[in-house]
Nucleic acid binder design. Structure first.
Lengths: 336, 336
DNA sequence: CTGAAAGCGCTAACAC
DNA sequence: GTGTTAGCGCTTTCAG
C-alpha cells in the first residue's frame, strides 16, 4: 500500500517550508501566485489531501456531527437519519452514525467515543433500555461538554434540546377520526407494549375511550408477531363477539399485520373494518390497500434536530429548546 | 459549555508528569498500583475520556471503517449497512457512514475525506452515476493508499476486493421456477430500466426467454411509479391479450406495485398470476399476500465485506478477492 | 512574500 | 516507578 504524502514531503521536494505549503494550499494571501501554483500542482500530482485528523486536532474542530440511533431498520428512524445527513451536509457538516440496538451499554459507549474530539455535537434518539432503567446520567454528563439534541423519545429528565413528535395527539386524532366515521368498537393493537412509547400510546387510547360514552375499546398487545397475527385474526373473525369497526395500530408491525389480516380473511365490504396506524410511507404508497396512517413528518424531525444543534454550536451560551412536531392523519384506502 | 479535561491538567493537579498519567490510564505495568488508582479516580471524577483525535493522530490508526452508501432508504442497502456495523464492532471497529444519493460528486468527496486519516479502510457501494459516466478513477486512486472493498454493484474496471450478488442467477432461477410451474407468458416489470442493474436484469430475462421455445416474454419498463402501476393494471386486466401467467419484478417498487395491482383487481384464483420479485424481507413477512422473492442475503454481503476489508488491513501485501453471493428463491404466497 | 517555531492531546522510547 | 522529550500532520503567530 502506497504511503500518503504529507505537507512536509511536498515542502522538501519544493525546497520550501511546511508553512509555505500549508498557506499555499489554503490560498493564503500571504503567498505569491507563483508559489501557490507550484505547490498546488505538485500536490495534485502526488494526490495530496490534508490529513483530516491532524487538521481536526490543530483546529479543535472536526465539522462532524455524531448521530446515535437505536435501529436502522426502523423506517421512521432511517428517514430521520437521512434528513439529518442532508441538512448536516447543507451546513457543511458530516455525520458519524452509531447504532445502539436499543442497548444502554452501546449508547453510553457511543456517547463517550463521540464526545471526545470526534464531533462537535451529538443528535441522539435514546434507546429503550435507557427508559427501562431510567438511567439518564450519561446524557447529563455528556451534555456538560458537548452540545446535545435528543429526538423522538422524550422523558422529563431528558431536559436538553429536543425534537419530538406529539404522540398523544396522534392517538387522539386517530380516535376522533374513527368517532367521526361512526365507529363504535375500536380495537387497539400493539406489538410494542413493552416499549415506553407503546405504553403511552395504549394509555392515551384507553383514557380517551373511557371518556367517550359512545365508544367501546378493546386491546390486543403481543410482542410475538405470529401470536399477534393469530389473536387479531381470531378476534375480527369471531362473529360471537361484537363486531370491530375500527383498528388502531400502535406501531408499524401491528398495523401491517392488521391490514394483512383484514385482507386475508376477505371481510366483505359492508363489514369493512377501518384501519389507521403507523407505516413506512414509501412502502405504503405501493401496496394495496394503502393504509390510512399517522404522519410523523420524519423530514421535519431531522431538519429541526440539525437546526437546533447548529444553533447551539454557534451560540456561546446554551439555550434549551424543546420542539414538538404536530402529526396528521393521512386518509388512504383503509378508512373513510 | 464546560471544557473537557485533558491529561495535562490531570497531571498538573496530581503533580505528576503527563506520561505517568497516560501510562496509568493505559494500565502500563511500569506504573505502580497506587498511582494508577490515584490517577484513575481523578480521571473518573473529572469525567476524563481520552481525546480520540489526538490518539488517532499519534497512533496513526483510528479503528474506523468508512462506509459509503448510495441510499439509506434502499432496504437492501440498509440491511447490509446494519450488518457491516455489527461485524465491524465485533472486530473492534466503528463505522463512519456517508450517503451519496447516487451522485458521483458526493462519492468522490466522501472517498477523499474518508481516505485521509479518518478511516483505515473503506467499504463502498458505487453509485449509479459512477456507472453511467463509466468513471472509476477515483476508486483506483484511493485504492492505492487505502484498503477498499466494493459491494453489490460490479464492473470489470472495479477490480478491487468486492462482494456482489449473483444477479444473473437470480433472474434465471426465477424464470426457471416459473417454467417449472407451467407458466407460459411471463411479464417482466421494472422501474429501474435506467439503472445499470436494471438493464442487466432485463437482458438476462430476455436472453433466457428467447432460448426457451415454450416461454413467451413481455416487458414493462417505466420509471414513474404511477405510470408503471397503470401500465401493469392495464396489461393484466386486458382480456383481449394473452393471459399473463407470471410476473417477475426487477426491483422492490415494481414488485410491490405488481402485487398491489393483482390484489386490487381481485383477479380470481383460477387465473392467479404468479409473482416473484425483490422485497424488503421484514416488511414482506407482515403483508398479505407475502410475495415469493429473491433472497440476496444482505447479512452475508455485509459480513463478507467486513471480513475482506479486515483481512486486507492485517495483511501487508494486498490481495484481491471477489466474492459472489448466491441467491435463492423463497416461495411464499404468490407462487407455487 | 517566506520561514521558524509553538502547540493541538496524546504515546512511547529513553533517561534517570 | 516516574519524568523528559520527541513527534504524529497540520495551522498560525511572529520574525525576517
Amino acid at each position: 500500500m502506497k504511503k500518503k504524502i504529507t505537507i512536509k514531503e511536498i515542502a522538501k521536494i519544493l525546497m520550501v517550508s511546511v508553512s509555505t505549503v500549508s498557506k499555499a494550499m489554503n490560498d493564503s494571501p500571504e503567498i505569491s501566485e507563483k508559489t501557490k501554483k507550484k505547490v498546488k500542482e505538485l500536490a495534485k500530482f502526488y494526490g495530496y489531501v490534508p490529513n483530516h485528523i491532524a487538521v481536526s486536532l490543530k483546529n479543535q474542530s472536526t465539522f462532524n456531527i455524531g448521530v446515535i440511533i437505536p435501529d436502522i431498520q426502523n423506517s421512521f428512524l432511517a428517514e430521520v437519519l437521512k434528513n439529518i445527513e442532508v441538512h448536516a451536509k447543507k451546513n457543511g457538516y458530516r455525520i458519524i452514525t452509531f447504532f445502539t440496538g436499543e442497548k444502554l451499554k452501546e449508547e453510553r459507549e457511543s456517547l463517550n467515543i463521540l464526545s471526545n474530539g470526534m464531533v462537535e455535537g451529538i443528535i441522539v434518539c435514546p434507546c429503550e433500555e435507557t427508559f427501562v432503567e431510567k438511567e439518564f446520567n450519561h446524557f447529563k454528563n455528556i451534555a456538560e461538554t458537548t452540545p446535545l439534541v435528543t429526538f423522538d423519545r422524550i422523558h422529563k429528565e431528558l431536559n436538553f434540546n429536543s425534537v419530538s413528535v406529539d404522540d398523544d395527539q396522534s392517538i387522539l386524532k386517530a380516535c376522533a377520526h374513527f368517532q367521526s366515521t361512526q365507529a363504535k368498537n375500536i380495537l387497539f393493537v400493539s406489538s410494542i407494549g413493552w416499549l415506553s412509547v407503546g405504553k403511552t400510546r395504549r394509555r392515551t387510547f384507553n383514557t380517551f375511550i373511557e371518556g367517550e360514552a359512545s365508544l367501546n375499546g378493546e386491546t390486543i398487545e403481543e410482542h410475538n408477531l405470529e401470536e399477534l397475527r393469530k389473536k387479531i385474526e381470531d378476534r375480527i373473525t369471531d362473529t360471537s363477539l361484537p363486531k370491530i369497526d375500527a383498528i388502531l395500530g400502535a406501531d408499524i408491525e401491528s398495523t401491517l399485520i392488521s391490514n394483512a389480516s383484514i385482507a386475508k380473511n376477505n371481510i366483505p365490504l359492508i363489514d369493512r373494518i377501518s384501519l389507521i396506524g403507523y407505516v413506512d410511507k414509501n412502502h405504503n404508497e405501493l401496496q394495496y390497500p394503502r393504509v390510512s396512517y399517522i404522519n410523523q413528518f420524519p423530514e421535519k424531525v431531522g431538519e429541526k434536530a440539525v437546526e437546533l444543534l447548529i444553533k447551539n454550536l454557534k451560540e456561546e451560551q446554551k439555550i434549551i429548546q424543546q420542539e414538538v412536531i404536530k402529526t396528521e392523519i393521512v386518509v388512504k384506502d383503509t378508512s373513510k
